[in-house]
């Protein structure tokens, strides 16, 4: 049954799995990741790349597929990957195992992007994510295990997608899947009841990673968080937003979004003039722009020379 200690399932590249109920075939291409609830593979099905999650614990598969189904039914925009198939299959070792198949989210991991993006870009991504979280919360669901490892910057949609829905919890219930440093219970800054403030706390911790990866002692001493925040340099403009979210002061995701937007606006306004215009127009300074610019500078210099 489900007391197996390692729910992960190791499959060699090239392995084929045939669905017993829906008769579709999947070929393993590459391991995407594995964790406490199973393994996720990049697989191919009729020439298309999709992602397959498999676990020794069949209830993990059923539960996560249930959540993906619900999110899909009620959401116009796709925060998570879309669900493609749920089935059982025999592995090369003749064991029967449950799995589900979902959209493969192609992009860059936010774990590495968070330290590289400009604060303006990071703020914009977070703002977008907050709108989508708000939509999720309005459906009475909390994401739960919100963390950088579960965020992928979708290359084609140019926004953050959330993978690994194992922590999604109905509002009012107890959150069971979480990661210590993103969990307000661990820091004794709140409980584990599923409510919007729970996700906003985790999002604040994500933002703090833009300073540098957050390391911590085994027991979550609040002072560690406050000291980290007050001594931060890169994320200073977001200090207030982060603090409010850590303290559970934002009633909902939209209130936090409003403040994030303000910080972004402020950052744009306080940029040097030429940088501001180029960024707002969302294009880089081209070579021609530079020639015109230097021409103008030279002309001005010439005029000043003449006038003097």
């Amino acid at each position: 049954m489900m007391s197996s200690i390692h729910p992960t399932v190791r499959l060699a590249n090239g392995t084929k799995i045939n669905g017993l109920w829906h008769k579709r075939q999947y070929q393993i291409k590459q391991l995407l990741g594995e964790g406490a609830r199973g393994s996720t593979y990049l697989v191919e099905a009729s020439g298309k790349k999709v992602a397959l999650k498999i676990s020794r614990d069949p209830s993990v598969v059923t539960a996560e597929a249930n959540i993906l189904k619900k999110l899909q039914r009620a959401q116009s925009i796709s925060l998570g990957p879309s669900l493609i198939d749920v089935d059982d299959g025999y592995l090369p070792n003749r064991m029967k195992q449950s799995f589900y198949v979902m959209e493969y989210v192609q992009g860059k991991p936010m774990t590495t992007l968070v330290g590289k993006l400009s604060l303006v870009d990071l703020g914009r991504l977070m703002s977008r994510l907050l709108s989508e979280l708000h939509q999720l919360h309005s459906m009475s669901y909390i994401f739960g295990d919100l963390k950088l490892d579960n965020m992928i910057f979708d290359d084609s949609l140019k926004r953050i997608r959330l993978v690994d829905v194992g922590g999604v919890t109905q509002v009012g219930r107890g959150i069971r899947e979480y990661t210590s440093i993103y969990d307000r219970g661990f820091w004794r800054l709140g409980g584990r009841k599923a409510e919007p403030t729970y996700d906003l706390f985790a999002l604040a911790i994500c933002l703090m990673h833009a300073e540098r990866p957050l390391k911590f002692d085994s027991n979550g001493q609040q002072q560690i968080l406050w000291r980290f925040l007050s001594s931060s340099k890169r994320i200073t403009p977001f200090q207030q937003v982060i603090k409010q979210a850590l303290l559970g002061k934002y009633r909902d995701a939209l209130h936090m979004k409003r403040d994030v937007d303000q910080v972004v606006q402020h950052l744009i306004r306080s940029r040097p003039v030429q940088q501001r215009t180029t960024k707002v127009n969302n294009r880089r300074i081209s070579e021609r722009d530079l020639i015109t610019l230097s021409g103008m500078v030279a002309f001005n210099g010439f005029m000043i020379y003449i006038l003097l």
Partner: peptide, 15 residues
């Protein structure tokens, strides 16, 4: 038992 059910029904039992 639960695992002998088709995935759709299993989803309902899980809930």
């Amino acid at each position: 038992n639960e695992e002998a059910l088709p995935p759709e029904t299993r989803g309902e039992v899980q809930e």
